[in-house]
């Protein structure tokens, strides 16, 4: 299996909002990249953390764990974490793991 490279783009569309656009395979081998970013993301200005998963081709349990970790970090900060982009595959994965009941998901994809 050739893996799609995992990329994280960080933008600040407006003050207090940070948007992470993830793409590629988000798994055991790549999830550490995002986990190490977490402390830098939780800066004092952060009010909203937006996560776009439209370009993510695969998530494994380590990827999910990293999202949960980010969610808890945002909750403690405190900031709101919400998902702004989703594919049917990821929406299904969130449903199986019942994370759809925990996370703020976009209404269009669910």
């Amino acid at each position: 299996m050739d893996t799609a490279p995992f990329l994280v783009e960080i933008e600040n569309p407006e003050p207090g909002t940070t948007r992470l656009t993830l793409s590629g395979d988000f798994d055991y081998t790549t999830s550490g990249d995002l986990a190490t970013l977490s402390p830098t993301l939780m800066n004092s200005d952060l009010r909203t953390l937006e996560i776009d998963l439209t370009g993510v081709s695969f998530i494994d349990s380590s990827g999910l764990a990293t999202l949960i970790h980010l969610y808890h970090a945002a909750e403690e900060h405190p900031a709101e974490m919400r998902f702004v982009g989703m594919t049917p595959y990821i929406a299904h994965l969130f449903e199986v793991t019942a994370l759809d009941l925990v996370f703020n998901l976009p209404t269009s994809a669910t």
Binding site: L64, A65, I68, H72, E95, V96, T97, A98, L99, V102
Partner: peptide
């Protein structure tokens, strides 16, 4: 169905 164990604080 149900949520992942040990995940939601």
């Amino acid at each position: 169905r149900g949520s992942l164990l040990g995940a939601i604080k």
